[in-house]
Design a protein around this nucleic acid. Structure first.
Lengths: 337, 337
DNA sequence: ATTAGCACTCTCTGTCTGAGAGTGCTAACG
DNA sequence: CGTTAGCACTCTCAGACAGAGAGTGCTAAT
């Protein structure tokens, strides 16, 4: 158990390190904060904190740096959140409301806004519904012997697929087919749609219905993950070497980030979770932390909002902002269904 | 005018520099290629080439490095293209044919394939039609008081927009409206659609028609530009310092790259152009070269395929591959219209 | 015209040194 | 007993320096 003074020192060490990115020395702590004790006392306390695993030493004659446990304790007990000011709330909300083009555009914008607000990588995943259903589909004639199948799902997705036409039909006939098939398919899930396809007499009908079933179920990792803010994040001193920067660029790929974030999140909407260093389980990204929150609607679909950054991250700022954006999205998502 | 020997030497210098990324010395040239002359002779010739501006010197005791003029001459007169082997042609074509999901997915895949094939940044822009026309639009009811407008254009775009509904209508009524409006709008361009909106009696009809007109005209830079291959490109030695790498990451943003590439391309389909260093006109990217080609169909829409990389780029490989992908796309694009 | 030879230049690497920053420990102090 | 002054010790960092190595440019001989 930490004494009150140890806790105070730990807080200062973490804060100062987050701010300066430099190891924190006992003397600088005393001077900057006009502590009523000498640096030797701080050194003694620091040695304790180090024994207990809260902070470390890069080398003998360097100041102290928070260890994972130190950040953990800081986030849980020592930190005061830096709330999203009303002004900033309005800005974010306003920007989000600029969206005209549907769910995808909206998720992408959310990632961009969040990234800009916290200066790190922001990730937003599309809300996953246990079983999506078809709302409406439409066949549009393409040049030549194929048609474009456009399907709108009840989870907000709009997906397309090119389907061959054995007998070129013209838009008129495609419209008829569209109406006929919609009548049978709309409201169905993937399995039910597939079952329907099996019963179909007409081969072309069956093929289209199967295509719709695939679209309902489809999840492409990249397309479902919206990521922004890498450029800004790379300017932080943790990436100030070619190897580290290159590694970071490699690591921040949509599919990988998505796996990490999906794994880190909880089902519980409204809860914001922080995973520091190895806590998130991706051995290759030990120096990264994740702040993650779920959003969703009454219908039970759940998506993820997250920020990724170096363990030396401004948790005070990041946590409330992730939470705020997630909350906002939970409210807004109803509208694009 | 270069003598034959000078040209031969220049070719070797460029080739070796492209391969090794190290300044090329007179001795290494003689040894590696068993030249029938001494290094001193090469040195004399090199001095000439330097006087004429084909190559340079990083410093007194370093080997030679191609200057822009050297690359230029190499690309135009000295280089033998490394054709895309039938095997590779099949692979690329096969990958491109994997596309199921329509134009966007297809352009994005093309960029990925090209990037992988040349190991640099590949950019593909959507084919722009002078005036696109509406093929078909569909209204789908969303939860609450809005509807999703999905429009398919004759240039292959599928665009969506959320539109408010003043009086919640139900999908039935939306279908009626869809049919009514399609009958009036389909085949129209942006201006004609806008004109139509002005004549409309019904306010909601007019609003939807206006929205469609906007969608027909819409061009969002990011969404219209598909880019891949940055990760691989960053591994090249030209980016082996934090500042350069960071700069490269900043520079390779969709909107900027698009501007560069659109500016560099020619209207002439089938022609592949190479712009080296300052030739492309973006003063901030002097160390980059662009290989660019246009693709399009008989209808006159033109898109761009390009590769961006350091001036020290394997032009022999890159040029034929850009050309091949562009040709392929010209053929394939007919199918997704 | 070509080339051997050599002086000259510049970079690169490793070593060393001194300065500086911090800690850890000890002993003294209140 | 907690606190602190003092100091030895450790480690890093920047700069200086030297020597090796790589290349060129020039000159004179072939």
């Amino acid at each position: 158990m930490l004494t009150e003074r140890q806790a105070a020192i730990l807080r200062l060490v973490v804060q100062q390190y987050i701010e300066t990115a430099e190891p924190v020395s006992s003397r600088s702590l005393v001077e900057k904060h006009r502590l009523p004790v000498s640096s030797a006392t701080i050194r003694n306390e620091m040695a304790r904190l180090e024994d207990d695993g809260y902070i470390t030493h890069p080398h003998t004659s360097a100041g102290r740096v928070p260890a994972e446990l130190g950040y953990r304790h800081y986030v849980e007990s020592l930190m005061a959140e830096d709330p999203v000011a009303p002004e900033e709330q309005r800005t974010i909300e306003h920007q989000l409301h600029q969206v005209l083009g549907g769910l995808d555009e909206w998720l992408s914008l959310a990632a961009t806004i969040l990234a800009a607000s916290v200066g790190n990588v922001a990730v937003v995943t599309r809300p996953q519904v246990a079983g999506a259903h078809l709302k409406h589909m439409q066949l549009v004639e393409l040049h030549g012997d194929s048609a474009l199948l456009v399907a709108v799902m009840d989870d907000g997705r709009v997906r397309q697929r090119i389907v061959p036409q054995h007998s070129p039909a013209g838009q008129e006939l495609l419209n008829e087919r569209t109406i006929r098939l919609n009548a049978q398919m709309s409201g169905r899930g993937a399995a039910a749609t597939l079952a329907l396809a099996a019963e179909m007499g007409d081969i072309e009908d069956a093929m289209i219905v199967r295509a719709v079933a695939e679209l309902i179920e489809e999840q492409r990792y990249t397309d479902e993950t919206f990521l922004d803010g890498l450029r800004a994040a790379l300017e932080q001193p943790e990436f100030a070497s070619v190897e580290r920067m290159l590694l970071a660029v490699q690591q921040m790929q949509a599919y990988r980030v998505r796996r990490l974030v999906e794994h880190a999140r909880t089902e519980r909407i409204g809860l914001t979770r922080v995973l520091i260093g190895r806590e998130h389980g991706d051995e290759g990204m030990l120096e990264w932390s994740v702040v993650v929150s779920s959003y969703g609607d009454a219908a039970g679909s759940v998506g993820t909002v997250a920020v990724l950054g170096p363990t030396r991250m401004r948790y005070e700022r990041t946590i409330p902002r992730v939470r705020y954006v997630a909350t906002l999205m939970s409210h807004l998502i109803e509208g694009v269904r």
